[in-house]
Design a protein around this nucleic acid. Structure first.
Lengths: 254, 254
DNA sequence: CGCCTAATTGAATTCCCTCAAGATTCGTGG
DNA sequence: CCACGAATCTTGAGGGAATTCAATTAGGCG
């Protein structure tokens, strides 16, 4: 499934997403940004449902998502799939395996995806010379961990309605930020079940309740948000956990 | 609560724990290790139940745990406490707030603790010059995230018995590694409830079940492991998630 | 047009929660 | 060293949210 070599690589336009991401994470030196982009050695398309990274594979590369939505997951003993994180354009797929040299979970394409490939050793020496970029990637890891943490607190203390609503809000925000259509949230109810830890049956009933309440559109297959405000309210959603803190703490009067 | 200035600071002996930790995380240069230790500017004792770091505080420092057990937590709307992570000697208390400049959760002492304080700016410039240490701290963050991830997968897919057993196994391993007594696991059933997301009542019943099964000691107040093997088996415990991968992938024949 | 995946519905069950009251232990000060 | 209050642990009963199992319907795609 190799791409034909192109003079203008197909990810040229899409690289701006990576730049945006790194800027958000605190890399503000244009030279560094460009240098980082030049680490991308190739790209690969992955169709919906296929694995981007297999469980247990030895990582000689780092993979970044350039377009589409992916998820990090693991198959449990009982045959169910547990999704730990969703990934949007600009997110790296396998920070964890990069720093731990171990691939303990797999990454799959939730929609059709385009991914970029960086060489592990290239990146390593790059980070030696650009510790600021290293810090940025570290930040990205922590942000991902924060999302997981948010899920944990939701899953133990809140009702299914709130949890599903939360999950949908998160995707709504991340879709918007990635300039993707928010017309329909491109997740199946099975995806939602695997991510929330609820059964598919109950996810279905919850979705129906959200439709009944008017938060989601009725008579439609797929998940379409009808009333964004209402959904946010049901989820008691607060998007700050998705961001690097540019709040008060960032610039204290020191 | 300032310490009297001592010629031999009381954390002198305890510093070896930090060195061990950093070695595990891949820092093998003795000079770097020593330099890192010299960043510790002071220490502080915190009594069981007190906060080490308050929610929302502006971090000008990084705090490392030198002895005792601590936990990262957040108070939920409904008044319950959700514990996200336990910390053992050598662990930093607030990586997250360090890289995000934001303190979104609090840290409390589960047992009496001694913590060391590093200056934020000192550390920042140190990391600029020692990117390898930065990578090590990044690794530590990822390891912490891995533990959380393990909890997530357990909490959705497994029974209370397995979950509590898992939690206990984790502490057993971490106590052992920190050269602390494993006679009694120094957590209350309330701590376990806050960490697992189960109700105290149900934690209690689960503990009793574990006692009945012979995994925990009977007729004892506090939690004492009677049969380590059995507990591991009940939890289907696999400790690899607690480690930096020193497996096959770490030294490929390149 | 037919297959496969996804969505939907119903019924019975189970695990865990809440509420509420007691028993036990710990820590602290007298 | 003992006593008292506070925290922790224990026990019972009843209820509810989400699960499992099983079957059916609807859509998407070749």
């Amino acid at each position: 499934m190799e791409m034909a070599p192109l003079r203008e690589p197909m990810w040229a336009g899409v690289a701006t997403i990576l730049v945006m991401k790194l800027r958000e994470l605190g890399v503000d030196d244009d030279k560094e940004l460009r240098a980082f982009l030049s680490l991308i050695k190739g790209s690969r398309t992955v169709r919906r449902g296929e694995d981007i990274l297999k469980f247990g594979s030895l990582p000689k590369t780092l993979t970044v998502l350039l377009s589409g939505i992916a998820c990090r997951y693991r198959m449990m003993d009982n045959g169910r799939r547990q999704i730990f994180a969703f990934q949007y354009p600009g997110d790296a797929c396998d920070y964890h395996s990069y720093v731990l040299s171990r691939q303990d979970d797999a990454v799959a394409a939730v929609t059709d995806c385009l991914v970029g490939i960086l060489d592990r050793d290239d990146l390593e020496s790059f980070l030696q010379e650009h510790p600021r970029v290293g810090l940025a990637l570290w930040r990205a890891t922590v942000l991902e961990a924060r999302i997981l943490l948010e899920w944990v607190s939701h899953s133990t203390q809140h009702s299914a309605l709130e949890r599903i609503a939360s999950l949908l809000c998160e995707h709504l925000v991340r879709l918007t930020r990635s300039d993707m259509s928010t017309e329909v949230i491109p997740l199946t109810q099975i995806d939602l079940a695997d991510a929330s830890g609820l059964s598919v049956v109950h996810v279905n009933r919850t979705i129906q309740e959200l439709r009944e309440l008017g938060a989601l559109a009725k008579n439609i297959h797929g998940i379409k948000v009808e009333n964004r405000e209402m959904l946010m309210q049901i989820a008691k959603f607060d998007a700050t956990y998705l961001d690097v803190g540019k709040t008060a703490a960032a610039d204290p009067p020191l």
